[in-house]
Design a protein around this nucleic acid. Structure first.
Lengths: 209, 209, 209, 209
DNA sequence: GATGAATGAGGGTTCATTCAT
DNA sequence: TATGAATGAACCCTCATTCAT
């Protein structure tokens, strides 16, 4: 189980102590997301991230003492985001139909889409520390599994976990649509939506047997 | 539409004319797959690929004039492999139940698994040229769509294409199981199998309405 | 000839006027000795010295406007220490046998040992300004030569100076024992003691001829 | 006991396989000695060593994959030199008077002087790996101790070892003369020579008692 | 005066690629 | 043709020093 403590760990070298420092950190993280997303972890360079955020290279390293620590910080922040979103969704699940839950999953992915593609760059392609990446995956799986347990009454925890893994894999497709032509994009999205509904429905049916 | 011509385009500098040359190329490609798989495109080095294949670095560059060209060649070969596998599957579809087709997809993924993880390294993580990566995606989507058109009578070509995209995304999950614990691995695999069956079944039902 | 004036030259940016400032300077110098000793001049960083002394980096630079100036200040203070010690020894020489003088030299080295290893770090390994290092050497040589002139009646000033150089070199061995195993350490120390006695004795004999 | 095997270990990344490579390695080592001697280990830069030897930085790293490995190689080569010199001296000891042996030690130091000052830079000031530095010290001590055992009949091995340590420390003074004015230089040298004779003589006397 | 953020030259090292042998 | 030495731009990161707050 992921606790807030696990997540609140600060991967920064030194917490900025002045307002200016906080702004700088924000600018760096923004630039970091951009560059990691565009080029992937390995091809991204700290020099470019510094330039893109209007920061001297030395200043960047003041706050993030290594490339990995920057990636970890970004991953961590995204994990928090996602966890909150999933937690929120979990609270509303009781009042929703299965179909609405399915849609909520897809919508959730869409909302995170911009950041999500960077998360893929970092998680799937060796960005950040092994630990942080594993932790990130657990957060996502745990959050989705929680929702499934509420949405599909009677489902076993183990089953919920497995379904979460498969569901997340399918939902990743939402991100990829970003690279498709608009017409194709809409169709793929609709198809994913349909598949997720079907998946939840069948799961609900299966368990009740 | 992908024609053989598209695929047979040789990204190699010079087709080796002698037996010795062909062996050398094979050794290089084998080493390339290994190293790209283990380290990812960026972290893989030409020097290591040369060493691992018992080739001098200069010789490597005679056959593959750049790192990208080597990645392209590997991607191409893998695409051919996959295309053949999918084509074969297409021929048998007529005699199979929908459920069997679903299983065949998963099995196909499993068969390719070893090479597949390298393909992911190259396609998802910016290995090879943009063109080659796009081409590779088209081959996969086209092959899967072909099968869907045969397996689900009455499906429209557009619908088949969209389904292929979503299906491939879901099937990618088969690869990822490699990193899970054995017990989890089996459960995820079974779950994917189930989802694919459900997906095909529902598609078959939908179209008939 | 070294006069107090030469030595009292303050390499500090600004003599601290208040008690607080003096404490701060003391803390910095203490930390400086530690870090220079542990890491050597080059590898020591002003940041670490600041941190180790509980001082902000900006404050450190208020008192010591450069790394070199800090090293110089430390060298200077150590030179004063040594000079006083040697001066004291000089006063007692008249009442001592040659053998006791020899022992006093070795003991003197042992007393300074802790600080001495930092002095070696700075003098032998290019820490501090050339000037300061030369001045330091002169102080040591002068002090030892003074003692020799008193301990070995009739010795010429030039001869005393030369002997001081050679004697100091031999006495450096006392410091190095710090890195040997305890058993070896004791033996080396005894051996040096013996050699110094022999040296003084032979010098005393030679000059009388 | 140091065996040739210990010493022949090659710290190079890849032994040069062509004549040109061997020349390059020689040039690099020459430049390395110069720069390490002038600036000390830390302050020496690989860039300067490369420039001084007319080598591209990449080529330098082909043969010496790290700064440390270069320092180690230099230390090793010097150790071989010294060992051979000491071994040679050992063979002649039987025919020499004690005084001649003392002179031989000083002369040996003088012969090695140019390289010796770089060895001091590396051994005393953290250059090269800890292992290599320790090994170097052992080689020197062992070689000198061997000679002492032959020159001073009846001396115990342990005593020879301890004397070697102290003797080497004193002989280091020969190197330092390089920085003195010529007149002073000659006097110091003569003084060291005298001290070493006295030391050997007294040792010979002591043991015989 | 104290603080700590900012700066950027420079350091060690890597690696795709070229080219002389 | 096969080999491996050569090249150098670029990378990640450090740290002495300055300066605004």
């Amino acid at each position: 189980m992921i606790t807030p403590t696990h997540i609140a760990d600060a991967p920064r070298a030194s917490e900025p102590k002045r307002e200016k420092g906080r702004l700088r950190v924000a600018a760096i993280m923004e630039a970091g997301i951009q560059v990691f997303t565009e080029k992937g972890y390995d091809a991204a360079t700290m020099t470019e991230i510094a330039a893109r955020s209007g920061t001297a290279i030395g200043s960047l390293y003041r706050f993030f003492p290594s490339k990995e620590s920057l990636a970890d910080a970004l991953l961590l922040r995204y994990a928090l985001h996602a966890r909150n979103g999933l937690a929120e969704m979990a609270q509303q699940v009781a009042d929703l139909t299965l179909e609405s839950v399915a849609d909520a999953f897809v919508d959730f992915m869409l909302v995170l889409q911009s950041q999500r593609s960077f998360a893929i760059a970092l998680v799937d392609a060796r960005g950040g520390s092994l630990d942080e990446r594993a932790r990130f995956r657990e957060v996502m799986r745990g959050g989705v599994a929680d929702i499934l347990r509420k949405a599909v009454p009677g489902i076993s925890p183990a089953k919920a976990k497995v379904m979460a893994v498969v569901l997340l894999q399918t939902l990743k497709g939402v991100i990829s649509t970003a690279n498709e032509e608009p017409a194709m994009q809409a169709m793929i999205l609709a198809e994913i939506r349909e598949l997720v509904r079907t998946y939840l429905a069948s799961a609900s049916g299966r368990k009740s047997k």
